[in-house]
Design a binder for these strands. Structure first.
Length: 467
RNA sequence: GUCCCCUUCGUCUAUCGGUUAGGACGCCAGAUUUUCAUUCUGGAAAGAGGAGUUCGAUUCUCCUAGGGGAUACCA
């Protein structure tokens, strides 16, 4: 039997980080087993579902590299099929019409709580004759769930979890307006899509018991369940917008590489011995449900950032250059010409060693494309005092006389200059850096000279010298 | 309130009855270095509490505490 997993977000907002992890686990499990990973948009809440959110989910999945098989299923479009099942249940006496008003429902809840009983619908219409129905009230359809006994959910992550059936009331299958509820829809869709493994957040654990009852009543096979722990914010509380509950596109905008985020998310709640940096191939190869932890994990930006740095350092230069191109263009307000892009690519090796985000990478490469004369920051200005400028003047002359702009020749010239001046290399390198980059932080100074080339290097040095 | 789940360094985790409780991030100190990083070396840092089971519990059981989730005509 082929393994089929699915990710089933409701399009009421962006693809948040918790959803992304759920999607990742489903994707990995399917890929690991050579199965299928399906996408289903749970858009039955017409009020809150938006096209923008659907688009954001697709985009987020693509950005993370989580490709799904087959066309996405839109749950709302299957409402007739869902309702059919409800009607079938009705015909079989496994469901019934309920005419209780919202006020009655609220009353039941309050009373149950007051009496320390589970707050549940009391089943008042369960066995009543339809002829008793009040006039003018559109009924809902409720599932006739077992009153006693227990429901055992055999969860791959949580283990065997038992729920007393009296704890679970008769849930609504069809609303008064005839539309199916989530509980009915998921069960029918997962069945029709041949989903074998349901991997989702453990906030659905109780739902699993209810859904299992429904599945059994219909007579279908119960799928495997794996309820994974939720992600918490740094303070241990549920992830909110304040922490990391941002859309994945927010992480992209903060300069995180999708592969770094994916690695981080994978290690959050799942482990493979002491392995930390895990490639996609390894992840697919190693992923299993057994190694998913049972406790909630806190989101830690510091670790994400560290991983991001590792992935940036190991990334391909051209790939990174292409990534930062639009960022630089946004920063400078002008389009990058091909020569500049080549320059950036050439400098990338030294640049990426120092970056912890794509954004900071873009920022640190700005000096490469800056127009002369450079705008110097304060620290750079203070480095270029009279004495330093005199040194740079002589250095510029020395560089000017170089037969060719060869990296080694340039380095030798600078070192020779330092020696001639009786200065340590640092004493000459820092003012030089200030003149060449306008800042006090950059890749190695010889790399900078090499990448910038003769004209820019000498020009920038001369620009920095007053008069 | 009721039901369910969770609990090892600050954080993510390893350990599947016997370990000096390991690794990673972060932090501290040092080395390398033309800046910043990188890299390297070293360090501080943990079994929530209490009972049991056992020759022996971080590991198994129970209780307590703390945290989380679910309790909708949302998904």
């Amino acid at each position: 039997m082929t393994i089929v997993t699915r990710f089933a977000p409701s399009p009421t907002g962006f693809l948040h980080i918790g959803g992304a992890r759920t999607a990742l686990f489903n994707w990995l499990y399917a890929r690991h087993n050579g199965g299928k990973f399906l996408l289903r948009i749970e858009d039955t809440d017409r009020e809150r579902s938006t096209d923008a959110a659907i688009e954001a989910i697709f985009e987020g999945m693509k950005w993370l590299g989580l490709d799904w098989d087959e066309e996405p299923i839109f749950q709302f479009s299957r409402r007739e099929r869902h309702a059919d099942i409800a009607r079938q249940l009705l015909a079989e006496g496994k469901a019934y019409y309920c005419y209780a008003s919202k006020e009655e429902l609220a009353e039941m809840r309050d009373q149950a709580r007051a009496e320390s009983r589970p707050p549940a619908y009391d089943g008042r219409w369960r066995d009543r004759d339809p002829s008793e129905a009040p006039a003018g009230v559109q009924p809902v359809v409720r599932f006739k769930s077992p009153n006693d006994g227990v429901t055992l959910v055999r969860d791959l992550v949580q283990g065997d979890v038992t729920f007393a059936n009296e704890q679970l009331d008769d849930m609504i299958l069809l609303r008064a307006d005839g539309t199916p509820t989530y509980m009915l829809s998921v069960v029918v869709d997962d069945h029709d899509m041949n989903v074998t493994h349901i991997i989702r957040g453990d906030d659905h654990l109780t739902n699993a018991a209810r859904q299992q009852q429904l599945i059994e009543a219909i007579g279908w096979a119960v799928p495997e369940y794996a309820h994974i722990p939720l992600i918490h914010g740094p303070d241990g509380a549920k992830l909110s917008k304040r922490h990391g509950a941002l859309g994945v596109e927010a992480y992209r905008d903060m300069g995180y590489l999708p592969e770094a985020l994916r690695n981080y998310l994978l290690r959050l709640g799942w482990s493979h011995g002491d392995d930390e940096v895990i490639s996609t191939e390894q992840a697919i190869d190693w992923f299993n449900i057994e190694n998913i932890g049972k406790s909630a994990a806190r989101f830690d930006f510091a670790k994400l950032e560290n991983l991001n740095g590792i992935y940036i350092r190991n990334a391909d230069d051209a790939y990174l250059a292409a990534l930062i191109k639009p960022i630089i263009e946004r920063m400078t307000g002008t389009d990058l010409d091909p020569n500049h892009l080549k320059l950036i690519e050439k400098a990338m090796n030294g640049l990426k060693e120092r970056a912890k985000s794509v954004n900071s990478l873009a920022e640190s490469s700005l000096f490469l494309v800056a127009e002369r004369p450079l705008v110097l920051d304060d620290k750079a200005k203070s480095l270029l005092n009279e004495e330093a400028c005199a040194v740079l003047q002589r250095l510029a002359d020395r560089l000017e006389s170089l037969a060719e702009w060869d990296k080694d020749l340039v380095e030798n010239a600078v070192r020779a200059a330092a020696e001639a001046e009786g200065l340590k290399l640092g004493k000459i390198a820092q003012p030089l850096r200030a003149a060449l980059t306008g800042t006090t932080v950059s890749p190695g100074i010889f790399d900078v000279l090499d990448v910038l080339g003769r004209d820019q290097s000498i020009g920038r040095i001369r620009d920095a010298i007053p008069g």
